[in-house]
Amino acid sequence: MVYLISSILTCLCVLIAIAFYTLLERKVLSYVQIRKGPNKPSIWGIPAPLGDAVKLFVKEKVIPYGSNQYMFIFAPVLSLTLGLGVWYLYPSSFSNKFVSWGLLLFFCVTSLNVYGTMLAGWSSNSKYAFLGALRAAAQTISYEVSMLLLLLFSAFMLSTCSWDQAESMKFPIMFLLIPMFLVWFASTVAETNRAPFDFAEGESELVSGFNVEFGGGLFTLLFLAEYASILFMAMATSVWFFSQTVFSPLVFPIQVFIMSVMFLMSRGAYPRFRYDLLMMLCWKSFLPFSLCSLFLVSLMAVSS
């Protein structure tokens, strides 16, 4: 019963964080573009995310004619379940669980994310949605490889696969090899389909990509899954690449906040990449760099 209550509270906290992260995104992008952003509803537009949620969930549910109805509904549910389920690994001093091989569990869950995207595009019975799903799947699978290799680099250096133990380490991995941290951040941006690597939802080319046929509540589930992944990647960066030397209940959330804002700043600062250049960047630059980094740390472990 305790585990169930803890999991429910974690999911509720993540959903609330996602709601106000969307407000933060609109505010950051507005100030990047020298405008105000949401400021009419109450103070600083704080109730705006709640209004958006109500608006989306009360919309009429529309399922395209000829689509696979069961898969059309199952795909957003699967995406949100995976997006929230990975938060089971969140390290906390108040946690009532300990996952000794949490990094391997993270590998398994993130590798399943592509199925939600593919099912959403395939079940829509739309050529635009299916084309967007194919592009998203290719991008996700490609950058997942380099991202996981870089996580293994940190795991080798910290000699642990547990998120709780890695979070309490005193050594900032990012300062050991700063280019590796930059490659990691670019890989997480591509893995979560965020600008400038948002080819899964390239409105100018694909009419919104794999989710073009989704609206109302089902679109909200896909939206929540995407933002849950973004916040989790920001948290993962703080756990595996930053030092917790002065760990307190305040330091860790500040690090996560800074990383989540970097996702927003990259969207406001850079134009969209070209798709062939994106894939070439992964396979010809990031992957060899990740393999060399992992080989280096493996050589150090063997020699010591």
Rank of each mutant, 00 (worst) to 15 (best):
V251Q: 12
K40E: 09
L277I: 14
S100R: 01
P64W: 14
S126I: 07
P196A: 07
W101P: 00
N96K: 02
A17T: 10
S303D: 03
E167I: 01
D276R: 01
S304T: 12
V251R: 03
I178K: 04
F289R: 01
Y31A: 07
S298P: 00
T110K: 12
L152K: 01
I34T: 13
G202I: 00
G45N: 08
S304Y: 15
G216Q: 07
F252K: 02
F295I: 10
V109D: 05
Y270H: 06
V183C: 13
D164P: 00
F20T: 07
S243P: 01
F242R: 02
F214D: 04
P49V: 10
L84W: 08
M300R: 05
F252N: 06
M118A: 12
V14P: 00
W163K: 00
V2I: 07
A17R: 00
F107H: 09
S304R: 11
T110D: 05
S100W: 12
A225P: 06
F289G: 02
L119S: 05
V54F: 15
T117Y: 14
F252V: 05
L222Y: 12
L23E: 03
Y3H: 14
F286I: 06
V183K: 02
S124W: 13
E144I: 02
S298V: 09
C161W: 13
T160V: 04
G45C: 04
N68R: 07
F247L: 14
G217E: 03
K284E: 10
S67P: 11
R274H: 14
Y3R: 07
F185A: 09
E205I: 14
F107T: 13
P249Q: 03
P179F: 10
G37W: 11
